[in-house]
Design a protein around this nucleic acid. Sequence first.
DNA 1: CCTACCGATCGGTAGG
DNA 2: CCTACCGATCGGTAGG
Lengths: 213, 213
Amino acid sequence: MAAARKKAGKKPAAASARRPARAQDAPPPCEEISSRHQDILDAAAALFAARGYQATSVRDIGERVGLLGGSLYHYIKSKEILFVTVHDRALASAAARIGAAIAPCTDPWERLRAASVALAEIQLDPFSTTTPMMNDFRLLPPSLQTRLIETRDRFEALFDTLVRDIPLPADVDRKIYRLSLLTLLNNLSGWYRPGGMTPAQIGDEVMKIFRPR
Amino acid sequence: MAAARKKAGKKPAAASARRPARAQDAPPPCEEISSRHQDILDAAAALFAARGYQATSVRDIGERVGLLGGSLYHYIKSKEILFVTVHDRALASAAARIGAAIAPCTDPWERLRAASVALAEIQLDPFSTTTPMMNDFRLLPPSLQTRLIETRDRFEALFDTLVRDIPLPADVDRKIYRLSLLTLLNNLSGWYRPGGMTPAQIGDEVMKIFRPR
DNA sequence: CCTACCGATCGGTAGG
DNA sequence: CCTACCGATCGGTAGG
């Protein structure tokens, strides 16, 4: 990281060099602007997921897309709002992936298993950008925290339905059950190391624990 | 937080004012030095637990004990090493508390239940300083990360023994089982809100899920 | 234990 | 989209 900053004497023009030249007086086509904006969202997602909000600077994000930090502010309003945008998109993408995974299943236990395996795969995919951002909003201002918590709660409501449908002993608290399962799956990356079990196998093992025998 | 910094025009002499005056030429008694050092460790533990490593500045810690940030460096070597010290002490204290909780139990399930309830109480105690620091070493240099992970692994080995002793279906992976239980208990503060169940009741509910019926 | 400061870095802006 | 900069803050140090 320090080395990357040291050798940054070269102009960060790599991204625009990859793009076909465009006459300077022609207005930028709408697609190019949104494509650059998309690059920024992708770079921010990867860095926030890997290092967290506080440890990611706008200059880091700019470097990834071939811009200086200040130049990002033509596309974003603030670092905080950028994080909220990235967070919302990541959860929406995760929800879609889980929805597709449970669609073919009808048995309640099969549906919960399919959703758990899908969430395990999302959280452990090294190229996924949903990973550990789900938690740790503490570094953002409280106003944004409530926004983020609302989005996360809406995402987790998916599991609310799935847990409601499974048969469980009467003395098991379904809210604790659901929160326990989600906490577990969301924090797999805290101890998972590639090379052993696959994410799908881990999801299956977790379901063994959570399914009464 | 901003308000506290704003009104800091007053000299931060509160701590030394509470202490009885000492003749300026007398050598400082050894106990006073270690007491001040202890105050720093306590303040750092509370702030690291509440805000995390990165969001806690040495000036914040100094303010809590009535010193300026730079003055801390008479007692500490660096912020990083201060964190390692605080972390080690917190885990040692937690291990002692859990050891005391399981001592009266002989039945393997009772021992695991007692340990889980004790860990839930530690993680949810608002005055405890063990809370969420167990994870999130990402902001520290890798050399210290391995130190911290070693300490944490030694702490969690306590649960290794407990899980080894319980009867479980042959197809349940005990490593996944142990890591799942620990992940769960260590992240209770992510969703727990005071006023509902007690930490002990939550520990009991979690054990219901993890105990095969 | 403070004063006074170092160099680095931060999010963000003006002005072109 | 860059240059050049703002004010704030950071961990840490010298020198008394």
